[in-house]
């Protein structure tokens, strides 16, 4: 469901409440619905366990991929077995791990910077009606420009190397994180705030007992979206600015018509993105178990 919240939050940022409403309209399954759903599921799938389904899907996908790749010339599209061979060789001779390690630096720094920017600005716009009315339209206008279009601008300001790559990671992730933090902060349950008020809990204590716990769930959502965007930006930056690290490997492979190595890198980066996303989810489940959905 959270996926929908963020997809909706990204698009519906003109009115975050709308996003939440749209979600509420569909989220809480009633008991009836749950039974109906279980029956439905049992009928249509024969109750396959989800992990087995996952593995089956993965294997079937690889088989289809292998088959399709067999029909095409291998300079154009590589089969999973060829990709695996290239990946194994690249990891073994240290080329891929070294490049990956260097790429991680702009990812980590850019992600950290963009969280440090998005957090205070997002909370400000989310909690202050005046700030929201004034600057949310500006934010929407900025969001309408594809962040990749800022690449030439970043080149002029930051050059072609590390600083530029960090800047692109920031530009590509900061707005998405801000949107989620804003909509989350706007939708902090007003009852909790009122209750705190009537118990005369004020100042720092109110922040610690009401706002921090209420903010953690959407902060984790923001981190999860931001981390995936940053991983994407990490490889995008290396392809658009001076080709280094993983981008260099891809460029070399491209000039040699080595589709297998290119797919290996893309696969690796996607896997890393998924892994980071799962790590944030895991941290969320550990730290704030009360908010994690079914």
């Amino acid at each position: 469901m959270n996926t929908l919240l963020h997809t909706l939050a990204t698009i519906e940022n003109t009115n975050p409440q709308k996003a939440l409403r749209a979600m509420r309209a569909s989220t809480p399954p009633t008991a009836q619905e749950l039974t109906a759903r279980t029956v439905w599921t049992a009928m249509s799938a024969g109750q396959m366990s989800s992990r087995a389904a996952y593995v089956a899907s993965f294997i079937l996908g690889l088989v289809v991929w292998e088959f399709v790749a067999g029909l095409l010339p291998h300079v154009v599209f590589a089969s999973p077995s060829r990709v695996a061979v290239k990946l194994y060789a690249g990891v073994l001779n240290g080329e891929i791990p070294t490049a990956f390690f260097h790429s991680l630096q702009q990812f980590a720094l850019g992600f950290a910077i963009s969280f440090v920017i998005a957090l205070p600005l997002g909370l400000l716009l989310g909690r202050s009606r005046i700030a929201f009315a004034m600057f949310n339209p500006v934010l929407n206008a900025l969001l309408a420009v594809p962040s990749i279009a800022f690449v030439p601008f970043i080149m002029i300001w930051f050059g072609l190397f590390f600083e530029a790559r960090v800047a692109l990671v920031v530009v590509m992730s900061v707005f998405d994180m801000m949107v989620i933090i804003i909509s989350g902060a706007r939708n902090i349950d007003p009852t909790a705030v009122t209750v705190a008020k009537s118990f005369q809990i004020t100042g720092l204590r109110r922040i610690l007992t009401v706002f921090v716990p209420a903010s953690l769930p959407f902060l984790f959502t923001a981190l999860r979206i931001g981390v995936v965007r940053s991983v994407n930006a990490m490889i995008t930056a290396e392809l658009f600015f001076a080709a280094v690290n993983l981008g260099k490997i891809m460029q070399t492979a491209s000039s040699r018509f080595d589709a297998a190595t290119m797919l290996a890198i893309v696969f690796l980066v996607s896997l890393f993105g998924l892994l980071m996303q799962e790590l944030v989810k895991l941290a969320e489940a550990r730290l704030i178990p009360w908010s994690v959905r079914q």
Binding site: A45, M48, S50, A53, Y54, A56, S57, F58, L60, G61, L72, V75, V76, F77, I148, V228, V231, N232, A233, I235, T236, L239, F240, M250, Q251, A253, S254, F257, A259, M262, L263, I265, V266, V269, S270, G273, L274, Q277
Partner: peptide
């Protein structure tokens, strides 16, 4: 069950990184 894992993968994949591959194709 069949499609979801691959869609999740596609959504996190950087489109920019796919460009050189699609160019070959």
């Amino acid at each position: 069950a069949l499609v979801h894992p691959w869609v999740s993968m596609l959504v996190v994949t950087s489109v920019a990184a796919l460009v050189p591959i699609v160019i070959l194709l």
